[in-house]
Amino acid sequence: MNAYPSKEEMMQALKERHGTELQTCFSAGVVAICGLGGLGSNIALSLARAGVGKLILIDFDKVDVSNLHRQQYKACQVGMYKTEALRENLGEIAPYVQIAVYTERITKENAKQLLSEADIICEAFDAAEEKGMLVNYVLEKMPEKYIIAASGMAGLGPADQIRTRKITDHFYLCGDGVSDVKDGIGLVASRVMLCAAHQAHMALRILACEEFQ
């Protein structure tokens, strides 16, 4: 295997791509990703590639063979905790991004502690009730944070129905708003990745200094 490029080489490449000023904004950012399934694993990859400074990865679950059709894990990682598997994969792609992992379920009791360091929180859960819990919790108890949530990305509906909407100054919602995983064929990689890309892109837009928005 080839040796990894040095930290300086990778940072130089990011600065050449994004410009020094924008990369400085990305590198200073801390983003928490709540849930590491189809949304969360894809959000993490985009943000790590963009050189976001620190990612906080939170999930209690293990990689299952049924996840591989849409989540950024490898067949050889079935049975590993998603936190550990994703840390491994991100480490191969963007070895100098800081990663913190919490292998536990996010609840109203531990959310404040797990999320305190984050500037931006990406809601990437599966269950509608969990989405509702986290979004309401963050908006109520941590109003200084940004939350980027997702609702509606199941099925084979048109790609361009996935969109990002600003609900309040600190709350953005991605998805088509209606395609429930319980209806129809469930989730497919391409449409979940679209929604994850919307979330990751919104996070980068928030981190970017104002003149880039």
Binding site: A127, K131, L139, G152
Partner: peptide
Amino acid sequence: VVKSSYDETVLQDGDVVEIVSFVGGG
């Protein structure tokens, strides 16, 4: 509108409200 204030929050003429409803999948 925080959940604990749904009971006390009275809607007024001219208010603009959005109800965000989450569906499953992620």
